[in-house]
C-alpha cells in the first residue's frame, strides 16, 4: 500500500511537471496582459517598463525557471487582476466547484446505476428502450443547450429553482464556504448540478448497460442461477460488482471531462467556482491565474485517479495493491 502510494506520488510529480510546462508555455500566447492592465494613455516606454518589472521580456526558460522555483514553494504566481497569490484566489473558489461536482457525481451514481442495470436486465422493456433513446440524445446534445433549456423551463417558466449564484452559504471551520447546509444553498445547487449530471449520465448508463449485459452472459452468472439464488442477489451482488470494475476505471478518466464541463456549467449558471474564475481569467489575460488553474486541476485529476485505483483494488480481489506494489 505504502509502496503503491509512493510510486503514485513520483508518477504524479512527473505529470505535474509536464502540466506546468504546458500551462506555462501557453502563457504568452494568450495575449498581452499589459494591455489589459493599463489604460489607453500609457505610453509605449511605460508599457515596456511594466513588462520588464513583470519579467515578461525574459527568455522562456528564464521565465519558467522563476515560475518553477515559485511553484515548489507553493507560489503559483500573482494574479494580475486580483493582485493576490493566484493559488489563494483559486482555493477560495474551490469549495463551490467541488460541491457542484460532488452533487453531480452523486446524481450520476444514483441515477445511472439503476438505469443501466434495468436496461441490461430487460433490454426489450419499453422503459429500457426509452432510456437508450434518451441517452443517445443526451450524448449528442451539448451541455450548454441542456443547461439553457433547464434555466428556461425550471427557472423562468415554472419558477421552481434559481438560475444563478450559490445563494446563502455558511462557513465551516472558517475555510470552507458551503452551500450544502442551507435550504437556499441547496436550491441553488439543483439546476447546475443537474445539468452537469445530465452531461455525464448518458455515457455511464450506456457503459453500465453494455458491461452488465456481457457479465450476465458469463458462466459464473449461469452457475449462480443453477444454485437457485434469487434474481435480486444475482443481479445486484454477482453481476453488478463485476460490472462496476470497468465503470470505476472509466469514472476516473471521466474526471477530466467533469472539469471541462464545470467550466461550461459555472459560466452558464454564474456559479462562483473555479471554472467561472478560469473563464474570467482567460478573458482578462490573467496568465498567472490561468496557469495556476491548470496546475490545480492537474493535481485534482492525479488525486482522483489515485483514489479510483485504490477503490478498484478494493473491489477487485485479483488486484492486490500491497502485494504487487503496483
Amino acid at each position: 500500500m505504502l509502496i503503491f502510494l509512493l510510486r503514485r506520488m513520483i508518477q504524479a510529480c512527473f505529470v505535474m511537471i509536464i502540466i506546468s510546462v504546458i500551462s506555462f508555455a501557453i502563457q504568452d500566447k494568450l495575449g498581452d496582459p499589459v494591455q489589459q492592465m493599463v489604460g489607453m494613455s500609457v505610453s509605449l516606454e511605460e508599457r515596456n517598463q511594466i513588462r520588464d518589472e513583470l519579467g515578461l521580456n525574459d527568455g522562456f526558460f528564464v521565465q519558467y525557471w522563476h515560475f518553477a522555483k515559485g511553484v515548489i514553494h507553493g507560489d503559483l504566481g500573482t494574479s494580475y487582476y486580483y493582485k493576490e497569490p493566484a493559488l489563494d484566489v483559486i482555493l477560495k473558489k474551490l469549495p463551490a466547484t467541488l460541491e457542484l461536482a460532488f452533487c453531480a457525481i452523486l446524481i450520476v451514481i444514483l441515477v445511472a446505476t439503476p438505469c443501466g442495470v434495468l436496461a441490461a436486465i430487460k433490454p426489450k422493456h419499453a422503459l429500457s428502450r426509452l432510456l437508450m433513446i434518451i441517452s443517445s440524445i443526451g450524448l449528442s446534445v451539448p451541455i450548454f443547450i441542456v443547461a439553457i433549456l433547464m434555466v428556461y423551463i425550471f427557472s423562468i417558466e415554472l419558477n421552481m429553482a434559481p438560475s444563478f449564484g450559490r445563494g446563502q452559504t455558511i462557513e465551516i471551520f472558517g475555510l470552507w464556504e458551503s452551500g450544502l447546509f442551507t435550504k437556499d444553498g441547496l436550491k441553488h445547487l439543483i439546476l447546475p448540478s443537474l445539468s452537469l449530471a445530465i452531461a455525464l449520465m448518458p455515457i455511464f448508463v450506456r457503459l453500465i448497460r453494455a458491461e452488465m449485459m456481457e457479465v450476465l452472459q458469463s458462466e459464473y452468472i449461469r452457475f449462480a442461477w443453477s444454485k437457485g439464488l434469487s434474481a435480486r442477489r444475482i443481479y445486484f451482488i454477482h453481476a453488478l460488482k463485476n460490472t462496476m470494475l470497468p465503470v470505476i476505471t472509466v469514472g476516473g478518466i471521466q474526471a477530466g471531462t467533469l472539469v471541462a464541463y464545470t467550466i461550461l456549467t459555472e459560466t452558464i449558471f454564474q456559479w462562483p467556482g473555479m471554472g467561472f474564475l478560469f473563464m474570467d481569467a482567460v478573458s482578462r489575460v490573467d496568465t498567472p491565474l490561468v496557469s495556476a488553474y491548470l496546475i490545480v486541476v492537474g493535481g485534482i485529476f492525479v488525486i482522483t485517479n489515485t483514489v479510483v485505483d485504490l477503490i478498484y483494488g478494493l473491489v477487485n480481489p485479483t488486484v492486490r495493491l500491497a502485494s504487487h506494489g503496483l
Binding site: S218, E219, Y220, I221, R222, F223, A224, S226, K227, I237, H238, K241, N242, L245, V315, N316, P317, T318
Partner: peptide, 17 residues
C-alpha cells in the same frame, strides 16, 4: 438438482470469496 459446470476457472464469481 445441482449442477457442475465444465470450466472451473469460469464458474466461480471472481469478486466474491
Amino acid at each position: 438438482i445441482a449442477m457442475i459446470f465444465q470450466d472451473p476457472m469460469m464458474t466461480l464469481n471472481p469478486v466474491l470469496t
